[in-house]
Design a protein around this nucleic acid. Structure first.
Lengths: 210, 210
DNA sequence: TTTTATATCCGTATAAATACGGATTTTTGA
DNA sequence: TCAAAAATCCGTATTTATACGGATATAAAA
């Protein structure tokens, strides 16, 4: 039987080692490497392109999971990334799916599920559990509003808002009328479907717009 | 030799199991229970007050680590809590230390360190690693922040602001006058040294107050 | 116990943001 | 190239937020 060659990429040593221990008990899975950031992962995969699976955390130093997913596509490898994250936000999931992840697991997934998914993915099939898919769908459909990403100017205005500038101050900095900025603000609120500055900032932070 | 009776409290199953596996290899440590939230933990400790150590995550559903620390003090037990968190922010660390934690480890701690700390704490000694202490000290001495912590009410108001509520709406929800909320808002702005809602939210997010 | 911090409330004013409902020019993408 | 989106501007009105400068009762801390 061919064993599944697997790499773990997570910046938390205890989590890495824990996963390692769990997977070690399965004869068909071989953890061939543990790395703690995206750069290490890419370096390893470049010299070990025959790797089957990488269990990939999103938040890591140097190069995060998103960056790693991106890089992997430009490398000559068949490695299939499985995201293991604690975030169940739709935008994360959707982003990963779009960037080529084969699965998306939460860190509270049970062991059986993890092993099951590793086996499914090693066979070349993508697998997203129903609850994960649901989050993604929700996000996608909510996109009718938030997919109209902000225009360049709007993004600029949003950034200045987030730095505590008032409409008047922003107008002065951008050499336009306050009315213009007021309109931009109104349009930003509308596009992000929020009703005031507080909600706006929260949403923008969540969407990584700031 | 008396074994160290240990409980793991973390909402991520993979992490719980991984820790369990790691600790299992040490004869002097016995993982007697794994729980996934603070309520379960308290329930277990109440009926097993002879537990020596609890490895306690901060972010958990139902009752988080802070709540659990708080509860533990009012229970007749000698259990010594060791926080295992991914957050290395000074305010988290300081808060835990103040609430009776015996140690504070990051999730990227290595196994040897973990086991070492478990043994030290089981002997009744508190242990905070140099890098953790440093963060805490930094936080303590940064009086611009630490001295201006928000009061309970203010925190409540801040949370409601961050959810997009207006002053009037908050007043209605808390059964007080709008004037009161206005004062709270003013005090919050002053304490966090910001001048409007946008800056406030940004700062609060950065400080993990939201 | 005495001081300090907290939570509550009030008035007066101004500044800022939001909600309507338009319009024109420039840029850009299909 | 031509339609659509973006960026610019305007008026009127209302609602919110911020800035002063107070006050009192209670709880917590020193």
């Amino acid at each position: 039987m061919k064993t599944i060659k697997l790499v773990i990429a997570d910046d938390h040593e205890l989590f890495r080692n824990g996963l390692n221990e769990l997977l070690k008990r399965h004869d068909d899975i071989e953890v061939i490497q543990c790395v703690s950031d995206g750069e290490e992962l890419i370096k390893f995969i470049k010299s070990n392109p025959e790797t089957d699976i990488v269990l990939l955390d999103i938040s890591m130093p140097n190069m995060d999971g998103f960056g790693a997913l991106n890089k992997l596509k430009s490398i000559n490898t068949n490695v299939k990334p499985i995201i293991i994250s604690m975030h169940d936000e739709g935008n994360y999931i959707a982003k990963c799916a779009k960037m080529g992840a084969y699965s998306y697991l939460l860190k509270n997934t049970d062991q059986e599920e993890l092993v099951k998914v590793v086996r499914i993915v090693s066979g070349g099939k993508k697998y997203f559990s129903p609850n994960i898919s649901e989050k993604m769908i929700d996000y996608m459909s909510d996109n009718t509003v938030s997919k109209d990403i902000l225009s360049k100017k709007e993004t600029e205005v949003l950034t200045l808002i987030s730095k505590g500038n008032t409409t008047k101050e922003i107008a002065a900095q951008l050499y336009v009328s306050s009315r213009t900025i007021e309109t931009h603000r109104a349009n930003i609120l509308k596009k992000l479907n929020v009703k005031n500055t507080a909600e706006l900032i929260i949403k923008a932070v969540n969407m990584k717009l700031i």
